[in-house]
Design a protein around this nucleic acid. Structure first.
Length: 286
DNA sequence: CTAGGATCCTGTCAGC
DNA sequence: TGCTGACAGGATCCTA
C-alpha cells in the first residue's frame, strides 16, 4: 500500500514525534508481525530505504518497519499522527483489532496496525541494515537513476511487461501499484508493452514521469494523507485529486476524454486510458 | 537465469 | 439474509 511517497511522508512526520525519544516498552500482539528479539532504546535516526523505514536506536540495533499492503503507523500523544493504509480507523480508539505491535514512548504511543499481517517490524543490528536481504537488493530510486541506466535495466527483462518491471524493486525502487499506473499514463505507455520494446526515449520519459508524480505526491504529503487527525473523523482523499487513472475506471480521461478502463497486468489491477496508452503488446520482437 | 502464478492474511463488496 | 468469489496502494517463493 504505502509506496515511496507515503513512506517518506511518514518518515518526515514521525521525526517530529519520536526522534530522540526513548522506547520504554514493546508489546507484541501478533507474533508474525515482529521478527527478532525486542529491545528498547532511544530513536537516534529515522531512515527510509525504498518503502521500508528504519529506526536506528542508541543500542546498536535498528527497527526495520515495512507496511506492505495494509500497514499503518499511528502515533498517539498530545496529538495524533496517522499514516499508511488509509482507513476510517485512523481515529479509532487504540489498540484496535488490527493493532499488531505497540511501541511505548515516554510521552506517547506508536501503534503498528496491519489488517492483512503482510507487514512487519524486524530487529536488525544497525551495522547490518544494508545486508538485510530486502534492503540489500533495492535498486536506486528514480531520482538517482539516469535514463540510460534505466533503459539498460529494462533490457534485462525484455519479455516482461513494463508494468511488472517497474514494480520490481530490484529494477527501480519506490513505485507501487498507484505510481506505476500513474507514471505509465503520464508517459503514454501501455502497461502490457514488453520492457525490451521501449525506446530510449520512452524509457527516459517514463523515468521522468515517475519522478514527477512522486515529487508531486511527496510535496502534498503522500496520496494517503499524512495527517489524518480531524476530530470529526472526516477523511481527506488526496488520491482523488491526484490520480489521473488510478481507481478512475469508467470516468473520462483527463487528457482526451476517453473512458478509463481497468485491466489486469502482472496480477495487479491496472488502470489505463485506451486512447493515450496504445497497446503494442502484440508487437513482435524482431 | 527469466517470467508468471500462487501465496501469505483479513476484510469488504458485488452478485446471486 | 447468507453464501461465494473476486479483489486489495507488497514482496517472496515455487515452478516450468
Amino acid at each position: 500500500m504505502p509506496e515511496l511517497p507515503e513512506v517518506e511522508t511518514i518518515r518526515r512526520g514521525l521525526q517530529d514525534y519520536i526522534l530522540k525519544k526513548k522506547i520504554k516498552q514493546i508489546d507484541i500482539l501478533c507474533e508474525k508481525s515482529f521478527i527478532g528479539q525486542p529491545c528498547v532504546g532511544t530513536v537516534e535516526n529515522i531512515r527510509r530505504f525504498g518503502k521500508a523505514l528504519v529506526l536506528d536506536l542508541d543500542n546498536s540495533n535498528s527497527l526495520m518497519i515495512h507496511l506492505r499492503m495494509t500497514g499503518q503507523l499511528i502515533y498517539d500523544g498530545k496529538e495524533r499522527y496517522a499514516a499508511g493504509h488509509p482507513s476510517d480507523n485512523f481515529t479509532d480508539h487504540l489498540p484496535n483489532k488490527q493493532t499488531r505491535v505497540i511501541l511505548h514512548f515516554e510521552d506517547g504511543t506508536l501503534f503498528f496496525n496491519d489488517q492483512r499481517k503482510f507487514g512487519f517490524i524486524k530487529i536488525i543490528p544497525t551495522d547490518q541494515v544494508k545486508d538485510e536481504p530486502f534492503i540489500g537488493k533495492l535498486a536506486k530510486e528514480p531520482w538517482e537513476m539516469s535514463p540510460s541506466e534505466f533503459y539498460q535495466k529494462l533490457q534485462k527483462h525484455p519479455k516482461s511487461c513494463i508494468k511488472a518491471v517497474i514494480l520490481d524493486q530490484t529494477v527501480i525502487c519506490g513505485l507501487g501499484n498507484i505510481y506505476a499506473d500513474e507514471s505509465l499514463f503520464a508517459a503514454g505507455i501501455h502497461p502490457l508493452k514488453k520492457a525490451g520494446l521501449l525506446s530510449q526515449e520512452e524509457a527516459k520519459r517514463l523515468l521522468e514521469e515517475a519522478r514527477k508524480v512522486m515529487d508531486k505526491s511527496i510535496a502534498s504529503g503522500g496520496s494517503t494523507m499524512a495527517t489524518y487527525v480531524r476530530a470529526d473523523g472526516s477523511r481527506g482523499d488526496y488520491l482523488e485529486k491526484f490520480a489521473q487513472v488510478f481507481r478512475r475506471e469508467g470516468k473520462p480521461c483527463l487528457k482526451c476524454g476517453s473512458k478509463i478502463i481497468k485491466i489486469k497486468v502482472a496480477g495487479r489491477g491496472t488502470h489505463i486510458c485506451p486512447t493515450c496508452q496504445k497497446d503494442f503488446s502484440k508487437e513482435a520482437h524482431d
